[in-house]
């Protein structure tokens, strides 16, 4: 049994499919972050899921999916400012990594409208 079950939690969805659980988190959170399966929370729980795995923040509460082989997927909510801060830091680190590898920068460049030769000539 994971330590998650020993914490004070709220259940918002029970014994549902992973897709429905993800939809719930996406629709009912103030902030939504996406993590890879295996993302670690609360000391010893490694998130199980089909990527992209949504995790939500609603006030002081973190919403996440909890999967049990014989019972399906649950949406749990646990108050944890520490885990929420870690989630935000993780997102920042992902953006930095993406910028370094040219991911977002390349995307941003490609979004810029192409400059026409006529405009350049006029200038």
């Amino acid at each position: 049994m994971s330590c998650v079950e020993q914490l004070k939690y709220k259940l918002y969805l029970e014994r549902t499919s992973f897709k429905e659980a993800r939809d719930y988190i996406e629709k009912n959170s103030d902030e939504v972050y996406y993590v890879d399966p295996g993302y670690k929370i609360f000391k010893d729980y490694y998130i199980i899921g089909v990527p992209p795995v949504a995790m939500g923040v609603r006030g002081k509460e973190m919403l996440f999916t909890y999967v049990k082989p014989c019972h399906g997927t649950f949406v749990m909510g646990i108050d944890s400012e520490e885990e929420i801060a870690r989630l935000r830091e993780n997102e920042k680190a992902k953006i930095k990594k993406s910028l370094k590898s040219g991911g977002l920068k390349a995307q941003a460049d490609s979004v810029t409208a192409p400059v026409s030769f006529a405009d350049v000539y006029k200038r």
């Binding site: 499919s17 992973f18 897709k19 890879d36 399966p37 295996g38 199980i48 899921g49 089909v50 990527p51 999967v67 049990k68 082989p69 014989c70 019972h71 399906g72 997927t73």
Partner: peptide, 15 residues
């Protein structure tokens, strides 16, 4: 044989 099993499979595929 269930959605949960399929979800575990996805996890192994990723990790």
């Amino acid at each position: 044989h269930s959605d949960a099993g399929m979800t575990y499979g996805a996890t192994f595929s990723a990790i």
